[in-house]
C-alpha cells in the first residue's frame, strides 16, 4: 500500500515536471504570465507530493525490511529529483523582478527536465550492481493521487493568479 503510494507520487510528480517544463517553454515563447503561474503551481505541488512519497517509501522500507533507507534505486532517484527541483522555488524567492524571475525559473525547469532521465539512468546503473532494482509500478493508487495532485495544482494556480491580479491592481492604484 505504502509502496504503491510512493509509485503513484513518483508518476504524478513526473507528470508535474513535464507540465512545468512545457509551460516554461510556452512562457518563454509567449511571455504570458499565465504559463508562469501554471509552472509554479505544478512544480510546487509536484514537490510536495514527491516529498510525501519519499516519506511513504521510507516508512514502507522500515515496515518490511526494518531499515529506513536502503539506497534502493527508486527512492534515491526520487530524492535526487526532489533536490533538482527544490532550488527552483528558492530561486523564485531570490529574484525580485517578475519577468526576470519567471524567465530564470523557466530556464531551471527546462534544465531539470532534461536532467531527469539521465539522472535516473545513472542511479539505476550505479545501484544495479548491489540490488536488482524493482521497476516503479502502476497500480490503482495512481488515480486518487493524480487527482489530488491536479486539484491541488489547480487551487494553487488560481491563488497565484488572484495574487498577481491583486498586485497589478495595487500597482495601478499607486500610480493613480
Amino acid at each position: 500500500m505504502l509502496n504503491s503510494l510512493f509509485d503513484a507520487s513518483v508518476w504524478t510528480s513526473l507528470a508535474a515536471a513535464t507540465v512545468a517544463a512545457i509551460s516554461s517553454i510556452l512562457f518563454l515563447r509567449s511571455r504570458n504570465f499565465l504559463y508562469d503561474s501554471l509552472a509554479l503551481a505544478v512544480t510546487e505541488i509536484g514537490l510536495i507530493l514527491l516529498a510525501a512519497g519519499i516519506v511513504a517509501g521510507a516508512i514502507a522500507g522500515r515496515l518490511t525490511g526494518h531499515l529506513w533507507w536502503t539506497w534502493d534505486a527508486r527512492l534515491t532517484t526520487a530524492l535526487v529529483g526532489f533536490l533538482i527541483y527544490a532550488p527552483y522555488l528558492m530561486l523564485r524567492r531570490a529574484v525580485e523582478e517578475p519577468t526576470r524571475r519567471a524567465a530564470s525559473a523557466a530556464v531551471v525547469s527546462i534544465f531539470a527536465l532534461f536532467d531527469l532521465p539521465i539522472m535516473a539512468l545513472a542511479i539505476y546503473w550505479w545501484l544495479a550492481r548491489r540490488t536488482a532494482p524493482a521497476p516503479i509500478g502502476v497500480e490503482w493508487t495512481i488515480l486518487p493521487v493524480a487527482a489530488l495532485g491536479a486539484a491541488l495544482a489547480w487551487i494553487r494556480f488560481r491563488k497565484e493568479q488572484d495574487r498577481r491580479s491583486q498586485d497589478a491592481e495595487r500597482r495601478t492604484a499607486q500610480e493613480i
Binding site: 533536490l83 532550488p87 530561486l91 530564470s104 536532467d115 545513472a122
Partner: peptide, 25 residues
C-alpha cells in the same frame, strides 16, 4: 543566471550539483 541576485554564492552550488550529478557519477 544567478549573477544579479543577492544569494548568488548560495544559489550557484544548489543549482549546479543536483543537475551535475549524472556527470559526476
Amino acid at each position: 543566471l544567478t549573477v544579479n541576485i543577492k544569494l548568488r554564492e548560495v544559489m550557484l552550488p544548489m543549482l549546479t550539483y543536483p543537475i551535475l550529478m549524472p556527470a559526476l557519477m
